[in-house]
Amino acid sequence: MVDTVLQVEGLTRTFDVSKPWLNRVLERDHKQFLTAVDNVTFGIERGETFALVGESGSGKSTIAKLIVGLLKPSRGTIAFDGQPMSFESGTAMRNLRRRFQMIFQDPFASLNPRWRVGEIIAEPIRTFGLASGADVHREVARLLEVVGLSATDAGKFPHEFSGGQRQRIAIARALSSKPEFIVCDEPTSALDVSVQAQILNLMRDLQDEFGLTYLLISHDLSVVRHMANRIGVLYLGRIVEVADSKRLFTDPQHPYTRMLLDAVPDLALSGRRRTPVTGEIPNPINPPSGCTFHPRCPHVMDICRGDPPAQTPTATGAAACYLLTEPVGS
């Protein structure tokens, strides 16, 4: 039986990016909206790592913020463990909140510089009433050791640590409320490769130890390949393809996925001839009609400019491309 932890259904978020009212009146401009996330649907099973990968402007961080409740969806639903999430405060929501946490990209910005590390980690423990008195300190010490730091680090300030160590502190803080599900938004993009390896290994160990479920958001295909069981590829706010991690890399279905894979520098020096990538991501305020990838797509057909393609099931997932449904050459 499939045990779904998180189910996202038709999630959409638009931002008002209009000029100020007076400018609009004087310049006779209309209101402008940017659809950062457009009708996104996916589910995450317990214990797996689901990754969302995409380039800048693909809406991956917006999805992360929507899931943890830092932003309100414009349309669509998010259900955690079968319970729909509301964005009002309340006891039920509070209990639900404890069970998911987030790790941010920049460990220099996500830790309060005026707080000692011990206080940073203890805050969720106290807020959710998971321990009190001396137990809090014991728990903080234990968490610091779990992430590979020492218990005495609790008395230090964040600036005394390197980037990698700070990310460990952020992970300890995320773990302190005993969550089941962690949203990791580019957890290693600000780190050097050797430190990235330490953090990725730590994330895996913690997953095995505590049975965590991860939503990993990244622009780095090799990180995603290394960490994820299933991958969703985003382009301009839409999921263009979802597949098993292995399958996605050996047998990509959507032309955009293929292009993205081709663009990854080749460390194996196989001398493979890559198809030249063309064009850049269009402006999301004025996205192209139909399939938003059509101006860059090598297989573009007339139908692609009409309505956006629906998700078509593939061997291990789904892809939104007319190549999969329309007879080629028609």
Partner: peptide, 24 residues
């Protein structure tokens, strides 16, 4: 050697990344 081993690649299977302890 450590640096090369710590880079995740597209072709590798689910092995652990090589980890250089500490930092520069």
């Amino acid at each position: 050697q450590g640096l090369m081993g710590s880079i995740p690649t597209l072709t590798q299977t689910d092995t652990r990344l090589v980890q250089i302890p500490g930092s520069m």
